[in-house]
Design a protein around this nucleic acid. Structure first.
Lengths: 201, 201
DNA sequence: CCATGATGGTACTGATCGGTAACATGCTCT
DNA sequence: AGAGCATGTTACCGATCAGTACCATCATGG
């Protein structure tokens, strides 16, 4: 008796999204079938299609989940170092650099999706573009808040370094230029000119 | 009479590779069937399989062709500005920056292949990795020849900027940070410290 | 002029996959 | 207990695709 229901397991929609997150990122979106996702989630295709009207919509939901995760990282940075944009930058760069040096990491799942989904009208592309735009804006804002002159320029520089590190991880491997990401970005932040009148060193 | 044979058209193998280059890059590797390539090349699947033992081998040949094309660009830079590594760097950066701002460009086909072909044992991955490694080495050599201190570091910085510009082109679009690629790289080259004793300004 | 080899064309197989129908099960709330 | 609803299960359809068999065509070279 006393069948415990709450701890049983999360509802199928969450399990499906969790499994999709892992398999899509690890094997590539086009390489994973809905059957495989449903099976790995401990359910079946029918239940999957009761929660997602199509495979493409599952992909879009997957990407939306990634975007939410990215937001969470930014908020974690803000929470860890409130009112210290320099420390937040270091925090974020440390996070992404750590990921971009793991040998089994497949880079940025959002950027990968953009590469895999070449059709310009794919519903997931809107999510991808929105997420990248948002990241760029947050980065610009943070760099500006840190007191740098030409914040858009410096932010874009960092943005490109990060994106480059994460793609090249998949082509040239973990020993490639991406291994220098943290050092390069940190030196860039140290050398970059501050806005005059900024209170920083 | 006098049927002209030489100008007729290149042999099917070349046509197939040419079409594969266009379609694989434009639509993504996994989105193009061998039927589509054969048809677009004005031939058929049977003839395709007489020249390539499998689809994967066609992909590998496609990537080998891209690598050869990349070599040609480096040699063009060397030929256009012999014994002027600075000018060669500008030449190469201008080329890649021009491509990375076209709205219909799908970035680096080699890097895209690495993203699309997640299986670590895919025969094409060897070609991808070799090409990227080669590019990195050439860039390091050129930067060193240009008289910079810390050439590996500066070369990797440029490498990451370029790679980042070409992926982000596909996610955030042509108005993204990649639009600054040329300016950022040029300023980086101007500001970077030279090896002491270097004859440059 | 005929043999040979490369190519074009058609048709097929076997497998995978997205998506759906129909039915069975089991939980929840009343 | 019973209604209702989400879920599990199986089977199926239609389409696509990699790869192959088989034959027709046509140029070339002896």
């Amino acid at each position: 008796m006393a069948r415990l229901k709450p701890p049983a397991q999360p509802p199928p929609r969450e399990r499906i999204l969790q499994v999709a997150r892992e398999l899509f990122h690890r094997d590539g979106i086009h390489a994973v079938s809905v059957d495989a996702i449903a099976a790995a989630a401990g359910t079946n295709k029918m239940t999957l299609y009761r929660h997602f009207s199509s495979r493409d919509e599952l992909i879009a939901a997957y990407l939306a989940g990634l975007a939410a995760e990215s937001e969470a990282v930014w908020e974690a940075a803000s929470a860890a170092h409130p009112n210290d944009p320099q420390a937040q930058l270091r925090f974020l760069l440390r996070e992404v650099a750590r990921m971009a040096t793991e040998s089994d990491c497949r880079g940025c799942a959002v950027a990968n999706a953009a590469v895999e989904l070449a059709e310009r009208k794919h519903p997931a592309r809107r999510v991808v573009e929105a997420q990248k735009r948002r990241t760029r804006e947050r980065l610009v804002a943070l760099v500006r808040k840190a007191g740098y002159a030409r914040p858009e320029r410096l932010a874009d520089e960092i943005f490109l370094l990060v994106e480059g590190a994460r793609v090249s991880l998949q082509s040239i491997g973990p020993g490639g230029p991406g291994a220098r990401l943290y050092d390069l970005a940190m030196e860039m932040l140290e050398r970059a000119p501050r806005k005059k009148g900024s209170g920083h060193q």
